[in-house]
Design a protein around this nucleic acid. Structure first.
Lengths: 209, 209
DNA sequence: TGGCCGATTACCCGATCGAGTAATCAAGTG
DNA sequence: CACTTGATTACTCGATCGGGTAATCGGCCA
C-alpha cells in the first residue's frame, strides 16, 4: 500500500485563539495533523528542533522573535524545512525578509480561507505558493532603495521621539551624524520629514513598535 | 424536554482564515452554531439585521467600519444585542470605544484559547466578560485626558506628514490654529514632539493607518 | 591598487517648530 | 444667566529641523 502520507504540521502564531482555530480547521482535512504549537518565534525554532514537522505554518508578527527571523534560523539549521507564512499584509519588508530567509510560501489571512489547505499541500510537494497580490507588492519593493542597518537604527530612535541631539546621545554619535543619516533616510523612503519617515517605515514593516 | 438552547453566532473578522478557524473551533462545542460571516464592519451590521444572531464575535480592526463602530450601530438599533469583542490588545482607546458602544465582553486573541467558549456562554447569559488584563488597561486610560474630535483630526494629518502650514491648508484653518491644537495634543498624550505624538496615538488606537 | 560605499564629522542657513501668552466666539451646561 | 469648554486667531522668541556641500576613514570588491 502507499504510505498514509500524513503531513505533520507545526503552528506558530502568538494568538492562541487563532492557533486553535487553525488546528480545528486543518484537522478536518484527512492527511493533515497538527503536532505542535508555538506562541512566539523563539518557541517556533525550539519546537522545530524537537518535533521536526513536515510543514510550519508561521505568523510574521510575533513576540521575542519575528516570523522572518525564526524562518531564517530554522532554514539555516534545516535547509529542507518547509515553511508557509500565514500573516496579514504586514509590511513589504517583512514579507521580503521571510521569503529571503527561505519561506516556501505566503498566504494572507484575509485571503479566501479555502486556500490554506491547498497551500499546505503545495508547500509539502516542494512547490512555492505566492499569491499574485504578494508578488506584485514585492516587485514594487525591489525598486526602492534599501536602508542600511545603521539607518534602521536611527529610524527606531526617531520613532521613539526626541530631537536629533537626543538620538545622538543614545547612539553615541554626533548630532551632525544623525542629521546625515536622517537626510539619507528621507531620500530613500522617501519622506518629507521625520514624522512621515516613521509612519512610512511602520507601514512597510521596516520597524515595529 | 428543555429547548435545545442552540446559540446562533455571527463571526466578524476581516481575516477569512481566522473566521473559518473559529467556525471549526466553535462547531466542536454542542449548542453553538455559526450562522454567518462578515469580513468588515459594514457587513457585520447588515448581517446582524438579517440574521439576528444570539451572539456576535467581532474583531476590532476591520476595513470600512471598525469593530467599535459596528458595535455601536448594532446596539443602537438592537439594544439587546450581545457582542463579544475578539481582538489583539489594539489600543486602549479602541477597547474603550467598543465597550462604550455596548460590547458585552472582550477577549484577547492571545489569551488561552479555551476561554472563547466560556466567554460566548457568559455573554449569552447576559453576563460581561472582561479579563483583568483589559480592565487594568482601561483603568489607566481613564486617567488620561481625552482628545477633542478636532484634535484627532489634526493628529491624522500629522501622521500623514507635512508641515503645520500644509495641515492648515488641508483643514482650512490658520497655521496658528494648527499650532494651538498641536500644543494641546502634546500636553494631553503626552508627547515631546509631533513624531512621538503620532506613534503614541497609533499605539493607543486613537488613530490608524 | 583604485573605486565604491557606509559611517562619521563639520559648517552655513533659511524654514519650521514648539513654548509662552492672550484674546475672541460659539456651544453647551448648571 | 454665569460658567466652562473647544475652536479659532494672533504675536514673539529661542531651539530645532532639513537642505546644501564637503571632507575623512575603513571595508569590500574588481
Amino acid at each position: 500500500m502507499t504510505p498514509p502520507a500524513n503531513v505533520r504540521i507545526l503552528l506558530a502564531d502568538d494568538h492562541s485563539v487563532v492557533r486553535m482555530g487553525l488546528e480545528a480547521l486543518i484537522s478536518t482535512e484527512p492527511g493533515l495533523t497538527v503536532v505542535g504549537h508555538a506562541a512566539d518565534g523563539e518557541e517556533a525554532v525550539i519546537q522545530y528542533r524537537t518535533l521536526r514537522p513536515d510543514v510550519v505554518v508561521m505568523d510574521l508578527l510575533m513576540p521575542k522573535k519575528s516570523g522572518s527571523q525564526a524562518t531564517a534560523e530554522i532554514r539555516a539549521a534545516f535547509p529542507t524545512a518547509r515553511i508557509l507564512i500565514l500573516s496579514t499584509s504586514d509590511g513589504d519588508d517583512d514579507v521580503y525578509r521571510a521569503l529571503q530567509g527561505g519561506a516556501a510560501g505566503y498566504i494572507l489571512k484575509s485571503a479566501p480561507g479555502e486556500q490554506l489547505i491547498p497551500a499546505i499541500h503545495a508547500v509539502m510537494r516542494g512547490e512555492r505558493w505566492i499569491p499574485a497580490e504578494v508578488a506584485r507588492s514585492l516587485a514594487n519593493r525591489s525598486l526602492r532603495e534599501e536602508l542600511s542597518p545603521r539607518e534602521v537604527q536611527v529610524l527606531h530612535e526617531l520613532a521613539r521621539g526626541g530631537s536629533n541631539k537626543d538620538i545622538a546621545a543614545v547612539l553615541n554619535i554626533t548630532e551632525h551624524t544623525v542629521k546625515a543619516h536622517l537626510k539619507n533616510i528621507l531620500a530613500k523612503l522617501p519622506a518629507r520629514d521625520r514624522t512621515e519617515a516613521v509612519t512610512v517605515a511602520l507601514q512597510r514593516g521596516i520597524i515595529h513598535f
